[in-house]
């Protein structure tokens, strides 16, 4: 699954049927999900997998559980400050 922002419809004037409203609501929900996951960093695993398949296609992907363990271990080694 890609981590990019979901593609939305081109801004063409379509009649407002129930179907188009539903699809617009779905698109808006997808965009919101994409945004929230991006800001909180919940998409870190997907992004890492995407990075790995793009740059090192031969390397095996880590299991999601191991990825997160490694990520927190990294945070332990390189603490980041929070603002006051």
């Amino acid at each position: 699954m890609g981590s990019g922002r979901p593609r939305s419809n081109p801004g063409r004037a379509t009649p407002l049927t129930d179907a188009t409203i539903t699809s617009r609501v779905r698109a808006a929900a997808r965009t919101l999900r994409w945004y929230v996951r991006g800001v909180t960093g919940a998409d870190a695993y997907e992004r890492y997998c995407e990075h790995l398949t793009r740059t090192h296609p031969d390397e095996p992907l880590p299991a999601e559980r191991d990825f997160w363990r490694e990520k927190y271990a990294d945070q332990e080694r390189n603490p980041k400050t929070r603002c006051c």
Partner: peptide, 10 residues
């Protein structure tokens, strides 16, 4: 997050 559902941050 560690044992039940890793990565389910939100």
């Amino acid at each position: 997050l560690r044992y039940l559902r890793p990565g389910a941050v939100n």
